[in-house]
Every structure is written in structure tokens, then in C-alpha cells.
Design a binder for these strands. Structure first.
Lengths: 364, 364
DNA sequence: CTGTTAGCGCCTTCAA
DNA sequence: TTGAAGGCGCTAACAG
């Protein structure tokens, strides 16, 4: 008793009701009552934007601590019509490349005082659509989407209304979205050129499917490099599984003109090919040289450290997030989205035939 | 004109205001007005819990589609005092193990109609604390936390109040939290036993620091296995970097009684050791056998496919999320949390000296 | 089966 | 510098 604010309990409060009724989180007016001020004063104290007298501030501060008051972000978001959260939709979280991008996004978001709502589409366009809906219902202030690749995307500008969206890693037809990509084509062009430089004439390309944007773009780089060198293409699409890859590779290697070098267009294909080569008893780079698109943890530990094109995953995430926050801040949706294409690097190790003991980086 | 509901526009509506005023997302009452019903009818139609006449339902349905109405989850959450979202705090998203766990958590969450708010602590206890605060302000209905390991944790039951929390992978002192772990000790015991079975007498242990729960637990498994075999320990803590690891390993390998086998207690140590051995010109398993805790993508591609203990990352995530949702549903916070310890598997490849061409799984 | 009222916690607006 | 009123969109509780 005798506490500051004692006399300010509203008359209509039931006798048993103390400052912090059990089982209910303290609200701003609880704090206000305890501090003997109006709720608005507490609000202003919290926002810091409007001056509050020192004396009052102290009382409010004490009340907040006493009640362990935490502002209700839900109410804030509801009231303010903005949630201060962004959504991220990616195919899989366990893909190291996606995870790294996402990590960068969350870091930027934190820097802007934003929360990140995350979900996975499992590469399914329907799931992706549903999750986008879900995020919009949650009134995220913006979205970063790494679109699922199978079937036709269902993401359109009209779905998102005035909510900014940044499309990531794989473009979608709608021109109005901001998009962040990497140099898929010139990267693979560079690395195939490197293989050509080693004197290879028969360089095989392996990939999952030409219907995938990134894979196709990488294929085009390979094609261009081969054409420029006056060499004949040797292409296999269909690295669905270890078995398919092995079968395809075995057939080619047993042919009269087997490839002397192989270029794999993503990590999975690289893995499959390495296993297949091991299975076939072929040494890298002695029997076949190997180079791949996309670096991965452990690429330096393989029997022959891999030469690869490295994508700037962190940078991609950062750029995408910054682009998004710019849009959120500006509040305007462009008719034509910004397209950013980030450079990649070639990491020269030994699988291509180079002799370096340590990796060499080359911008591509 | 003549449209159903035309006559129901409230008189007080300004003349220019049509059903969907530009630049404002449609609300439930917009829908209600257009359908010529009360807002509650729309609410009930949406919830599906209370019957609505077929005729009315149709009108509401049409109005919803016409306005492209989307329920405002923010308002729902605010109103209902629950956000239908859970929070996940992990050290790094780009750690494949963490990412895989998180993926499983998001999958379970989606199954329950929940959203996932995710953030990273960067292994910093202060960041972790702040982020936990932040999530609580967002009124998440529950949290899964993979605690940062350095310094003392600042997470306590009182911080979270009545919000359920599941602690993950690394326990913290507070007994009241539900916790999901794996068999760190018995897993490493098993794999060291396996090395002993190969006839090794001098088996070295390498790890980052004994102050880390998981590393210490794995060390204890090593210690027990060595004691049981009557062998002498050979331990190095301090695999901070490639250099430190190389230095320590080099010294031991040049000694009069060099280890004939090495057990590494996490992926990073494994990587460092592999690089170091390569650098020292030692072959695996010819010169030194190697076995590690924690499997990783590509472990089968290394010059000598690695024998490892595999943690059930997906399963861990699933179990943790399910535990959390049980608590959320029940709504009661236990005095003493449930402790779940999941089994691990030994994946026998060739780095230990086994001759299998394909991996062999052994429960540990 | 349907409508009305009230209020969740906060902050904008207005008044003192 | 401070307070009071009102309403964001939704739904529980209570009529009808």
C-alpha cells in the first residue's frame, strides 16, 4: 500500500482484481493504471517519438518492469495495418543453397526490425499458391519467393495486390515482379571454356531437365562455349536418379568416342556423376575431367577436389531482401520490376585437371 | 442495379463509396453488405462450424469471390488471442543439420494449420534472448529453440510465461522445458567400439570444445569405449580452425606412437581432419582410419567414403514440433518437462577400414 | 438459422 | 505534456 498509482484503480474493477489479474497478459492500460497515467502516455513513452516528462517516464518504466509488460505486436500490427513481417517461400529448407539465401534474408530482415515468416513449397506450385495466400492473409508486408519449378506457376501480380514481391533465383513470366538471378549462362560458358582450355574436345553436359530455368540457362552457356570452340555437343538431360545417371554415363563412356570431360549443371547431378564414375572405376581427372555448376560444402574433400561455379548465395539473399525493403518503404508497385543479375565465380580446384594445391577464384 | 443486396447499403455510406472502396482491402462487412447479410453470417460461413442456409451460403460465396475477399489473419489472431503461429530459433539456418530439422518443423506446422516465424541467434545468447522476446511480442503460440551454446543461456521458464517451449538438440539447465535430444554418448560409444573392433589400439578423439554439450557427450562415449577396451585416451579439444586442427594432428602423427584411427566429434572437425590428413599425405583408411559423428551430404563422395554416426534430423524436428503442438493444444505447462532422446544410426562406409561397397546401417 | 452488441490492445485524432 | 474517444476486423455471447 502507499504505492504510486494505488488510488487510480478504476472503481468498477472487481475487488479481487489486482494490478495484474492472473492468467492474463498485462496490457498497456494495466501499465497506465499502475503508473497512474493515461494509456496514451505509456504508448508515447514506448514509441519515444513524443516527449514525456522525466518524472512520468520513470513511473511508467517502473510499472512496465513490475508487470513485465510486453507490447502486443499483434495488436500493433492489426491497428497499424502492417505486420512488420515478411514472408519467404522456398522449395526446400534443407537445400544448402536455399538455406544460405534464406539466412541472409532473415539477417537483413532483423536489421530492419522485421520478422520472417517462412514456408516451403516442396517444389509444388499448388502448395506454393496456397502458402502465398496464407501469407497474404497474415498480412505480411512483402514476400521473397523462390518459385517452384514444376508445372505452371500460379503466382501473378493480381494475386498479391499491392504487396511487394521479389522473385528469386528462377524468373517467372510476369514482368511486373522484381527479380534476382545469377549469371547462369555466362558462368557455365566460363567453366566449359576452361575445360576446352585444358584441351578437351569431347565435353559432355549432364542435367536434370531442360524445362528448368537454371538448368536450361546453364545448358545455353555450355552450348555457346562448344560452338565457339567448334566442338560437338554431347548432352544428357535426365539425371533424375543415381541409376539413370549411371546408365547414361556408362553408355557414353563405353561408346567409341567417350567424353574426356564432363560438365554437370547442378550439385545433384555432380554427386550422381561422381558416384557413377567411381562405380565405373574411372578416375578424376585422370580418366575424365569434371567440372560442375554450384559449389557445395565438401567439394574440396572429394577424391579429386572439384572445380565449380560458385553462386553468391548470401549476396543473393541480401540483395533480394534489400530490394524488398526498398519497395516496402516506398510503397509503390512498379509496372515493370527491377531485374538484378549477380555475378558468379569459378573456383578452380583439381577435378578439371589443374594442378593447384589450393583453390583459385576467377570471376566469371 | 437490381443486384441482390443493393438495398442493404447503409444509409450512412457516402454516395461515392461503392462495395469495394478503392485502395482498401475488402473486409468481412464489405462481403456481408454485398451479400445482403450480417457480418456474423459471413464469419460463420467461413468457419463452417455453424450451419448456414444453402441460399445464403451461395450469396456469401459469390460476394467473397467478387471482392476477392481474404480473411484478415491479423484481426483473427488479435481477436482470438492466439496467432496460430509458432516460432523457431536456431543458431544458423545454413547449417544443414539445423536446416533439415527446421524443414521438418515447418512441415508439421503446416499440417496443423500453423505458420512458422523463424530467426537465427548466430550462437549468441543475447541475440537469442532478444529474438525470443520479439517472438513473444508477436504472441507466437509456442516455440522451438535450439539454444546458442556460448556463454550462459538467458532462457528461463519465467521469460516465456505460459507459452510452451521445446528445447532442441542441446539441453539447458531449467528442468521445466520439454527437450528433444539424440543419443550422443551411446552413438559415439558405438562407433569407437567399431574402430576397436578393427583392431585399433590408438584411437584419437578430436573436437571443438568440451564446453559444448553435444561434443562433451560424444567425448564421454569415446571415453567409455576406450576404457572398456582397456585403451588409453588420446584427446584433442580445439578444432577451431583448419590450422589448429592440422597442427594438432601433425604433432600427434609425428610422435612415436601415432594414432592409427581418428574419431571426429562433428562435421566440421571431420572436414578439418580430412583436409589435414590430405595435407600430411596420409591415406584413409590405409594410413589412418577415420570415423565421425554426424553424416553429411557428400560423405559418400570423399576419397574414402566416410563411416559416421547419423542423426535423425527430420525425425528430431517432427518429434519436437509434435511435442509442442501437444502442449499448445493441452494448454498446460508441466512442472517438469518431457525429455525425449532419439536413437542414432551408424553408417558404415569405408573410411573405418570396412570393405563394403555400399553403406551399411547399424542402429546404435 | 441469423443479426446485434461489444471488445480484444493499440495508436491516430482531437481536445485540454 | 497529457488524456479521452474511437475504431482497425473479427467473433463470442446473446438475442430473435
Amino acid at each position: 500500500m502507499g504505492e504510486i498509482g494505488d488510488g487510480h484503480i478504476r472503481a468498477k474493477a472487481k475487488p479481487k482484481e489486482r494490478f495484474q489479474p492472473i492468467n492474463r497478459k498485462p496490457t498497456m492500460s494495466d501499465v497506465a493504471r499502475l503508473a497512474g497515467v493515461g494509456a496514451m502516455t505509456v504508448s508515447r513513452f514506448l514509441s519515444g517519438a513524443v516527449p514525456v516528462s522525466e518524472e512520468t517516464a520513470k513511473r511508467v518504466q517502473i510499472a512496465i518492469e513490475q508487470l513485465k509488460y510486453r507490447p502486443n505486436e499483434l495488436a500493433r500490427a492489426f491497428r497499424g495495418q502492417k505486420s512488420r513481417s515478411i514472408g519467404v517461400i522456398i522449395p526446400y529448407l534443407y537445400d544448402p543453397f536455399f538455406a544460405t539465401c534464406t539466412h541472409a534474408i532473415t539477417t537483413v530482415a532483423r536489421g530492419n526490425g522485421y520478422s520472417v515468416l517462412i514456408t516451403t513449397s516442396n517444389e509444388d506450385t499448388d502448395t506454393e499458391f496456397d502458402e502465398a495466400e496464407h501469407m497474404l492473409q497474415h498480412h505480411v508486408d512483402g514476400l521473397v519467393v523462390l518459385p517452384a519449378r514444376y508445372r505452371q506457376t500460379r503466382l501473378t501480380r493480381s494475386l498479391f495486390g499491392r504487396t511487394p514481391v521479389v522473385i528469386f533465383d528462377r524468373p517467372i513470366p510476369d514482368e511486373s515482379f522484381d527479380t534476382v538471378l545469377v549469371q547462369n549462362t555466362s558462368g557455365s560458358h566460363k567453366i566449359v571454356e576452361h575445360l576446352v582450355g585444358h584441351g578437351h574436345k569431347r565435353i559432355m553436359f549432364l542435367g536434370l531437365s531442360r524445362s528448368l530455368f537454371t538448368i536450361n540457362a546453364r545448358f545455353l552457356g555450355y552450348r555457346r562455349a562448344m560452338q565457339e570452340a567448334g566442338l560437338q555437343e554431347d548432352v544428357f538431360f535426365g539425371c533424375q536418379s543415381q541409376e539413370d545417371t549411371l546408365k547414361a554415363l556408362e553408355e557414353r563412356m563405353r561408346s567409341s568416342k567417350p567424353p574426356t570431360a564432363v560438365f554437370t549443371s547442378n550439385t545433384l547431378a555432380t554427386r550422381y556423376v561422381m558416384n557413377a564414375l567411381y562405380h565405373l572405376g574411372l578416375r578424376i581427372p585422370g580418366d575424365v575431367a569434371l567440372a560442375g555448376f554450384d559449389d557445395f560444402d565438401g567439394a574440396e574433400l572429394t577424391s579429386s577436389p572439384l572445380t565449380v561455379i560458385r553462386q553468391p548465395a548470401q549476396e543473393m539473399g541480401r540483395v533480394a531482401a534489400n530490394l524488398l525493403f526498398e519497395r516496402i518503404t516506398r510503397g509503390e508497385i512498379p509496372r515493370t520490376g527491377t531485374k538484378v543479375t549477380l555475378p558468379v565465380e569459378m573456383v578452380i580446384r583439381r577435378s578439371c585437371g589443374c594442378k593447384h594445391r589450393t583453390p583459385v577464384l576467377v570471376s566469371a
